[in-house]
Design a protein around this nucleic acid. Structure first.
Lengths: 188, 188
DNA sequence: ACCTGAACACCGTTCAAGT
DNA sequence: ACCTGAACACCGTTCAAGT
């Protein structure tokens, strides 16, 4: 395929930026790197975007769409326990799982990014809280537990990054996830 | 106090760098910013440190010492439930709680930083796991739960950063922490 | 409309010169 | 031993010029 074919679209830059964030964090979003990866020059980049911050915002919007897709995919699962399990199994299977979230929460983000990040976070917590209400928790404790579940989800990636050997991987991950969900979604 | 008094020590730079990380993430560690904050010049910085990475490493080592202090402070608490509660209450009270962890896990850190980060992570998980064993969990499930607890701890900061209004703050934080610890440290 | 390549600004880094 | 200030390199950004 001819990546350097004339006619690069903004989405091409945004996707390249999103991939860079997932692999190396925000600091990996370098205009020159993106350009050479797409077979273009820095000047071309500045035709499509005002600055580096703009392509990061576009990348984050693309990320939001992928999150919506995931939620749309798993929302139809009837059993709420099962719904949460497949949701998290899917999430943890991805090679760069949690990298975008980590990159965006590492330092105070620019306002445009913060807005998207907040939207995604609320949508996810609401999705988990809804499942917990179906399980039988009242609204208030469903919200509190949803936050614990989501925090444990985010934090597991951080812990994995911080000390890979401390976090179960591959074959031994399933029992860990089972216990995590059992503990957090069982009514006391 | 005369910050610009001649005789800046490496710890001065390291502490300034650690404060910068806590406030604005790794990208806030700018040699020129540190220098002007200490009333010195960039040239002075490069007398004490080989490069920017070196002061970041020194900052992370200072952070590790503060973590050790915290553990030393709370280790004597006899009741393991109480020990965990005061540990987390203390952690969440700090203004820049979780910022260093977030900054260091946002992207693959340089090897020297990764080593310290792993050390701190393992020490913390071991400390929590020990409390869970005292509570009555067997070694294997104490380790699994300790990881969930620590992940929830880290992730709560991320969620807070991502969507402040989604996370209880101030007066309403105590009940959230109570539920979190109750759920995670109660034997099924 | 879309892209190139050269130029400039900023900050990390070096270093000769000062005390 | 410790620091300054000027110089250089790198990457974000601009822009005149090309197709």
């Amino acid at each position: 395929m001819d990546l350097a074919a004339s006619g690069l679209h903004p989405e091409d830059w945004a996707n390249a930026a999103l991939a860079a964030i997932a692999e190396g964090g925000l600091s990996a979003v370098a205009v020159e790197t993106l350009a050479s990866r797409l077979g273009a020059t820095k000047g071309s980049f500045y035709w499509h975007f005002a600055d580096r911050a703009a392509v990061i915002e576009a990348a984050v919007l693309a990320w939001e769409e992928s999150v919506k897709d995931v939620i749309r995919t798993f929302a139809p699962v009837a059993d709420p326990h099962e719904r949460l399990r497949v949701l998290f199994e899917n999430a943890f299977r991805r090679p760069h799982a949690g990298k975008v979230e980590a990159a965006l929460t590492a330092e105070p983000p620019p306002p445009a990014v913060a807005i998207v990040l907040t939207r995604v976070t609320r949508r996810r917590i609401a999705f988990i809280a809804a499942a917990l209400r179906e399980i039988g928790f009242d609204a208030a404790s469903a919200r509190r537990r949803a936050l614990v579940v989501y925090s444990a989800y985010l934090g597991t990636f951080s812990a994995q990054q911080a000390s890979p050997r401390s976090v179960p991987r591959g074959r031994s991950f399933a029992p860990y996830l089972t216990e995590l969900l059992e503990v957090l979604t069982t009514r006391g």
